[in-house]
């Protein structure tokens, strides 16, 4: 072993540390959301919430998002709801024309990307949160209902779950703790 080697100092160590640190944060935290772990997708149709709820169109939230008679939540409306107004183009926008050509005419359901999509093993009761706990939509969905353009959909390619906008179990539990709501496994799991 040469003297030179012995005096090597900590340079290589620090270099390794910083490099790994940066690579780890850049590729694996969902802040940057870059491939290969994360993917970004645009919604199939650039739906404008503001436009629809503006005075000249005059839709209310409940027109599309409502409770069904059995207490379940309707979620995102189906194509049949869109067709009620968009059988024929309502305006000049090329987005709308594209939407009619691609979905309305062939009668194909729009594959919406659900920002707050919960896993299949999770049961979320909208009615419990809205009717019983009197929460507002914004508390969980933020300003989504006031956007002019749908935000980018960020998801993980491994777990296939959306990022950023989705609620994870820790958040559910925090809120349930705060409001002293039940938090048995079967309160939310199925």
């Amino acid at each position: 072993m040469s003297e030179e080697e012995k005096k090597g100092g900590w340079g290589a160590f620090i270099l390794g540390f910083i490099l790994a640190f940066l690579v780890g944060w850049y590729f694996f935290s969902n802040w940057f959301a870059v491939p290969p772990l994360y993917g970004k997708l645009e919604q199939p149709v650039a739906f404008d919430h503001v436009k629809h709820t503006s005075e000249d169109v005059g839709c209310s939230c409940e027109d599309c998002h409502y409770f069904r008679d059995d207490g379940t939540w309707s979620g995102v409306p189906r194509l049949e709801k869109c067709i009620e107004c968009h059988e024929e183009p309502q305006g000049e926008s090329p987005e709308e024309r594209k939407f009619i050509e691609e979905y309305v005419e062939p009668g194909k359901e729009i594959p919406w990307l659900i920002y707050s999509r919960q896993p299949k093993n999770v049961f979320f009761s909208h009615v419990a949160h809205i009717k019983i706990a009197n929460m507002r939509c914004e508390e969980c969905h933020g300003k989504l209902g006031h956007t002019r353009k749908p935000p980018v959909y960020v998801y993980s390619r491994v777990s296939r779950y959306p990022q950023h906008t989705v609620m994870v179990m820790e958040e559910c539990i925090d809120c349930h703790n705060k409001h002293k709501a039940k938090k048995y496994c079967f309160t939310c799991h199925k």
Binding site: E4, E5, G8, G16, F17, A20, F21, L22, F27, F28
Partner: peptide, 26 residues
């Protein structure tokens, strides 16, 4: 790059990884 340096680099990298989201996230 010496052998020692390489080892240091690896160890540093390993510790750096532990301080990043990589292992926990994966």
């Amino acid at each position: 790059l010496t052998r020692r340096g390489f080892l240091q680099f690896i160890v540093g990298g390993a510790i750096g990884t532990l301080f990043s989201p990589l292992p926990w996230r994966m």
